[in-house]
Structure formats: C-alpha cells, structure tokens
Amino acid sequence: MGSSTAALTCLVVDDSRVIRTLARKMLVGLGLTTSEAENGAVAYEMCLASRPDLILLDWNMPVLDGLSFLKKIRATDLDRQPKILFCTTESEFSKITEALAAGADEYIMKPFDEEILASKLHMVGAL
C-alpha cells in the first residue's frame, strides 16, 4: 500500500452527513479517493461491490452498527481485507479493546482534525 500510483480508495461510513463531508474533504486533501455509506449494511454491500482499500468507520449507526459491520467483514472471504480505522466518539478503554479484538487496524477518537487523520493513515501504511 501507499507506493502504488493509483489513489487509494476510502469508504467513509457514518450516519452523520456532516461528518462524512468533513472526512471526505480531509481525505481528498490527503490524496485519497472516497465513497460514502450511512450505515454498516450499506457499507457491507458497497465493500463487496467495490473493494475499498480503507474504511473509516463510525460505531453507533442505525441498521448495522460499526462493530457488527467490522465482525461481519472480517468473517467474509475477500482476497484482500481492507484496513479499518474506527472513527467514533466512543473513547473508553474497554471499547477500544473490543474494537481491536474484532480486527480494527486503528482507532480515531472524535473530535479529530486533519493532523490526526493523516497520522493514523500513515500508521496503517496509507500515506
């Protein structure tokens, strides 16, 4: 990752349009291509259809929440699993532990800024 010439794709999963727009602007500014989903169920379908490199994932969403989505995608047989960064207001030690155990690669606690996003993308090898 990171060295290929084509821009990496990031699926932004959040039920708040405001957050999705904010994240999209920051990601595009960092050179990534983005798509958006408003809950885990939509995100799952989009994942199967378009195989994003990365997923920025909210926790609390209607229909299918972030943690359930994460478990579901990690149990799906894909030739390449996406890097998954939680991005949520959940900031309890126990929640983060739960997310990591379920297979999250990184964890962003809201509120965040572009510097934090860039730093976390760097850590998963996307920058």
Binding site: F93, L100, I108, M109, D113, E115, I116, M123
Partner: peptide, 20 residues
C-alpha cells in the same frame, strides 16, 4: 489529552502503555 495521544502514537501502544 485525547488529541495528543492520537498524534504519532499507534492505538496498540496507547492500549499497552497508557491508562485512562
């Protein structure tokens, strides 16, 4: 602060070497 621990510090290290 929450901001400071998210700059440069991988979350796995945050969990391992810090307490809330």
């Amino acid at each position: 602060t929450q901001f400071e621990v998210q700059r440069g510090l991988p979350v796995q290290m945050l969990m391992k070497y810090f307490e809330q």
